[in-house]
């Protein structure tokens, strides 16, 4: 149980239960739900949210919040697509485009982190303001949706690497990064920063660097999510990912990470992201109109949070 305690709080218990219930309902409603191809297609749909939620977890653990990650997703998408097209669209161009996209994501996170940790701005309003700037820049790079990515890009994303589906490779790499970071002093220090900021400061932790790193991780994971979305849509869209930031925050909170900072972890956020994804899937297969999604999603989030509190009180 020691490993589970690391998840923090008790909300994740309710979330895990919700996930199991949703999986069972979906399996009943959709007979081929457990076929490998269906599993893969579901996990592909959930991947961008999972990635953004992992990144958001670090920011929230450090006691901040990143509302700009949706705009970062859009900016990374248009930069990557434009760079690939500008360099002729061959294999090298794709690689340079991917690197450029990740660079843009990390740079946006750096800007957020420097303004918030360095200049002591409020994270909520600051990342809202920077999200306006980032989406403005995205519209500057690519005013209209369009500009396709070359075929090898989306073929590779939908295909497999060394026999393993690319999407699973991305999941594994993301989990490895998260596991690596969780095992490093960085994770503990970040929790200290979010949990008791003054005490962390007084023990001599470099708060600024830790918080900036968290924002850069959020930007970088936002870039990963954007590159995956690009693999799905196969084109550029300056308005991509607008709802991702809020959904990711919900996923993180569902996963048991405290919004106040200091408690939680990425594994819970992944569960939370899957729950949010599964809600959409269940509603689709239950034959309910798509409109029910926001309603049910909101109710489940509130129920899980209230349930988490009640479980904790016992």
């Amino acid at each position: 149980m020691i490993g589970l305690n690391k998840l923090g709080g008790r909300t994740w218990v309710v979330t895990a239960a919700a996930l199991i219930i949703l999986l069972v309902i979906n399996a009943v409603l959709q007979p081929n739900f457990l076929e490998p191809s269906v599993v893969q297609s579901n996990l592909t749909t959930f991947l961008p949210l999972v990635l953004v939620a992992i990144g958001q977890t670090y920011v929230i653990l450090g006691g901040d919040i990143d509302l700009s990650v949706g705009a970062i997703v859009a900016l990374v998408n248009v930069v990557t697509v434009t760079v690939i097209a500008g360099l002729g669209g061959d294999g090298t161009a794709v690689v340079i485009g991917l690197v450029a996209g990740m660079g843009v994501g990390a740079a946006c996170g750096l800007v957020n982190g420097l303004i918030i940790a360095g200049l002591r701005f409020q994270p909520i309003v600051t990342t809202f303001a920077t999200s306006i700037v980032f989406s403005g820049l995205a519209l500057w790079v690519l005013p209209q949706a369009g500009m396709p990515v070359p075929e090898p890009y989306w073929r590779t994303y939908a295909g497999s690497i060394l026999g393993v589906p690319t999407v699973y490779v991305i999941y594994i790499v993301a989990f490895l990064i998260a596991a690596f970071l969780a095992a490093r002093p960085f994770a503990t220090r970040l929790k200290a920063v979010g949990g008791l900021r003054t005490a962390a400061f007084q023990t001599g932790l470099d708060l600024g660097r830790l918080r900036v790193s968290a924002f850069m991780l959020s930007g970088l994971f936002g870039a990963f999510a954007s590159l995956c979305l690009t693999g799905e849509t196969a084109s550029g869209d300056p308005l991509m990912g607008q709802t991702l930031a809020m959904s990711a925050i919900s996923a993180v909170v569902l996963g048991g990470t405290a919004l106040a900072g200091g408690v939680g972890g990425t594994l819970g956020s992944v569960l939370g992201a899957w729950v949010i994804g599964m809600i959409g899937s269940v509603i689709f297969f239950a034959g309910l109109p798509f409109e029910y999604q926001t309603l049910v999603q909101g109710l489940i989030i509130l129920a899980a949070l209230a349930g988490g509190v009640l479980v904790t009180r016992r």
């Binding site: 919004l259 999604q293 926001t294 509130l302």
Partner: peptide, 14 residues
């Protein structure tokens, strides 16, 4: 933040 975000989803969905 989450309470009102969830409420936002419930009202919009409703």
């Amino acid at each position: 933040l989450v309470m009102t975000l969830g409420m936002m989803g419930v009202i919009q969905g409703g």
